[in-house]
């Protein structure tokens, strides 16, 4: 995010040529930005379109309206408000449980040394390579037997039960905290439990934020599991599935612009969250962990 301007003071011999190159770069960047921003702008403009249907040949709305946003929360076919709430609930619980699990597991793998550590790490790596929804049918059967079919609890479980496998990024972070801290605390008589809560966690704010945000965003964007798990139970849909339903064949004409409004509503908070946490994201990915 910072402007690096070290180069600007350097004296250059080929000033004119440099300038021409820079102008070219500006042009390329501007064109690219236009291409990249265009669909987003198109989406936002459509969400203010007063005319129904998706075949509009106009870029700007033919009739400006805010009605789509009202219709989003107030219509006969889709209970978007309910879905929004569902997603929020699922996201909050998933976030808390997953973050806790991830921190616990990655702390154990990073700072503690025990006999079967390597085995566990390998098993984790192997499990991560199975396609996530390969066993979706089986998982649904389990939920049914537990009496949790079609419930939000089932979603929270599905999203957070496997969270332990997502330890790589946090583990990479914990690895960078100097071990001497642990040693010093140990000499002072602290147990590993105390070290975890009192010393390591306060130092790990960035990774906690990163983990919490990613696990919070997950339920907002998952389509596969909700679709398979919730079947006909519209009361427990989440926004991703709900929005997808809006542009299914039966509804697309009537609800296309409403879909756009819904997409904007979902995209705004997530976009803000992502922009805030982008530096954690970069740190996380380039931390160097090999993930399955």
């Amino acid at each position: 995010m910072t402007n690096t301007t070290q180069g600007s003071t350097m004296k250059e011999g080929y000033a004119a040529r440099k300038k021409a190159v820079n102008v070219a770069v500006y042009i390329i960047l501007s064109v690219m930005v236009l291409i990249w921003i265009f669909p987003i702008v198109w989406l936002i403009l459509r969400s203010f379109e007063g005319e129904k249907g998706m075949s509009s040949s106009h870029f700007l709305p033919q009739k400006w309206t805010f009605g789509n946003y009202i219709k989003l929360f107030n219509n006969e076919d889709f209970m978007f408000g309910q879905w929004f709430l569902n997603t929020l609930i699922v996201a909050i619980f998933t976030c808390i449980i997953s973050t806790l699990f991830i921190l616990m597991v990655s702390y154990a793998f990073s700072r503690l040394r025990f006999k079967s550590r390597k085995t566990f790490l390998n098993i984790g790596l192997i499990l991560g390579m199975f396609p996530g929804f390969m066993s979706m049918a089986a998982t649904y059967n389990i939920m049914e037997i537990l009496g949790l079919g079609k419930s939000l609890v089932a979603l929270v479980i599905v999203y957070s039960a496997g969270a332990g496998l997502g330890y790589q990024v946090a583990k990479g972070f914990f690895d960078t905290i100097p071990r001497s801290l642990d040693e010093a605390a140990k000499i002072d008589g602290a147990t590993r439990n105390q070290i975890f809560w009192i010393i390591i966690l306060p130092l790990s704010k960035p990774i906690i934020v990163y983990t919490a945000l990613t696990t919070f965003i997950g339920p907002w964007t998952d389509y596969i599991f909700v679709d398979y798990f919730m079947k006909d139970n519209q009361e427990t849909y989440t926004v991703a599935l709900g929005l997808y339903k809006m542009i299914e064949k039966e509804f697309v004409t009537e609800y296309f612009t409403t879909f756009c409004a819904g997409a904007v509503v979902i995209a705004i908070p997530i976009t803000i969250l992502f922009v805030i946490m982008q530096r954690f994201y970069v740190a996380g990915v380039t931390g160097g962990a090999v993930k399955g």
Partner: peptide, 20 residues
């Protein structure tokens, strides 16, 4: 420049893909 591109990356994938 960076922010402009980050914004497109930040919009949830299922939204951008459905728009596309």
């Amino acid at each position: 420049w960076r922010t402009m591109f980050v914004i497109t990356a930040a919009v949830p994938q299922f939204v951008t893909l459905l728009i596309m």
